[in-house]
């Protein structure tokens, strides 16, 4: 597992707020001290290439070994084609390599894993790579609060088929009724029906208060069901962290121990679908032996996914700070 993120950092103290109180409230409740950002100079694919290469080197895998690549991002280089084809071109992956693109945000890591595991099973795949993450290029700069949340990071995760049968418990929940809560409203064909194509914009808007309503009214009941359906006790929860306040809210409502729910929000901000793998990378000390972990993600859609699985110590873990 490898994480790549811009080496440049924006400290929350350097950001402009209307008042000192506003700044202190932001730091205390949102919990972000700094974020890694390329300031719009790198895309998710740029970071993904770095992570992908480092992962192959670290595991001593050749590009010809890769049977499947699943790319998850909502900030792909182009609306069409997806990033997986760009990875194939730049890394010279086999032409018979299976390529899958998922357009997803914060729920994307678990969705990507499930896609990879099910495709891997169906196609009898030996080695596969999952690449997840975004850069902040598409956030709405006019909405100053949400613009201070998002950091840039992409993670590449390698999967290899073994003889050991790993059982897992998976549950998902989707609420398309609330699709407009996180939306790039001026993008896509729907916008073109009534507007000038020249005004197309991929900028993403998020309604934070509605996200909270989703967490309180939908995610928490969903997680309670998930908890009641699985037999094994989770040792560590790796949860998507939109901000510290929502993270602590979930832990409190679920009666989970804080020590079992590690975070990276202070140093990285909300890093979309890269949040969970980056948290695992930063807390590999928890996985020195086989552990039962749960991965909890939620976000755009609106959607929520939970996966409980056993995890062995990782063969290779690294982080790379990229020059912008």
């Amino acid at each position: 597992m490898v994480a790549a993120y811009p080496i440049d950092v924006v400290n929350t103290d350097e950001l402009s707020f209307n008042t000192i109180i506003e700044r202190e409230t932001f730091k205390r409740k949102i919990g972000i001290s700094q974020r890694h950002t390329s300031n719009g100079r790198l895309t998710a694919k740029d970071l993904g290439i770095v992570a992908f290469r480092k992962l192959l080197t670290g595991l001593d895998w050749g590009v010809s070994d890769i049977d499947l690549v699943v790319s998850v991002t909502q900030s792909s280089d182009f609306a069409v084609p997806g990033n997986s084809f760009l990875y194939q071109k730049e890394l010279k992956l086999r032409e018979s390599c299976h390529l899958v693109d998922l357009n997803s945000g914060c729920t994307g890591f678990v969705q990507g894993m499930i896609t990879l595991l099910s495709q891997g099973e169906f196609l009898n795949i030996k080695k596969a790579i999952l690449i997840v993450g975004d850069t902040d290029i598409l956030s709405d700069e006019t909405r100053t609060e949400s613009n201070k949340l998002i950091g840039d990071a992409v993670c590449a995760i390698a999967f290899e088929k073994t003889d050991v049968c790993n059982e897992y418990v998976y549950k998902n929940y989707n609420l398309g009724l609330e699709y407009s809560t996180i939306i790039a409203r001026s993008s896509g064909a729907r916008y073109c029906v009534n507007n000038n194509k020249n005004s197309l914009s991929p900028v993403i808007n998020m309604d934070g208060s509605r996200v909270f309503s989703f967490i309180a009214e939908n995610v928490i009941p969903f997680l309670k069901e998930f908890e009641s359906e699985k037999e094994d006790k989770t040792e560590y929860y790796f949860i998507h962290q939109p901000n510290l306040m929502f993270h602590q809210y979930i832990i409190k409502k679920m009666n989970w121990e804080t020590e079992r729910c590690p975070t990276i929000i202070s140093e990285f901000g909300n890093v979309s679908s890269a949040t969970i793998p980056l948290t695992i990378i930063r807390h590999t000390k928890y996985i020195k032996c086989e552990r039962i972990i749960s991965l909890i993600s939620f976000g755009v859609g609106l959607s929520c996914s939970a996966l409980q699985m056993s995890m062995s110590p990782l063969d290779f873990v690294d982080e790379i700070g990229c020059l912008c």
């Binding site: 506003e22 409230t25 932001f26 409740k29 949102i30 609060e145 949400s146 934070g208 208060s209 909270f212 309503s213 309180a216 009214e217 306040m245 929502f246 809210y249 409190k252 409502k253």
Partner: peptide, 19 residues
């Protein structure tokens, strides 16, 4: 502000169990 509204919503839910 959006942040203060989110703080109020979260803390009221935790204290009074009301969304």
């Amino acid at each position: 502000t959006s942040l203060n509204i989110a703080i109020l919503l979260t803390s009221i839910e935790l204290e009074f169990d009301v969304v």
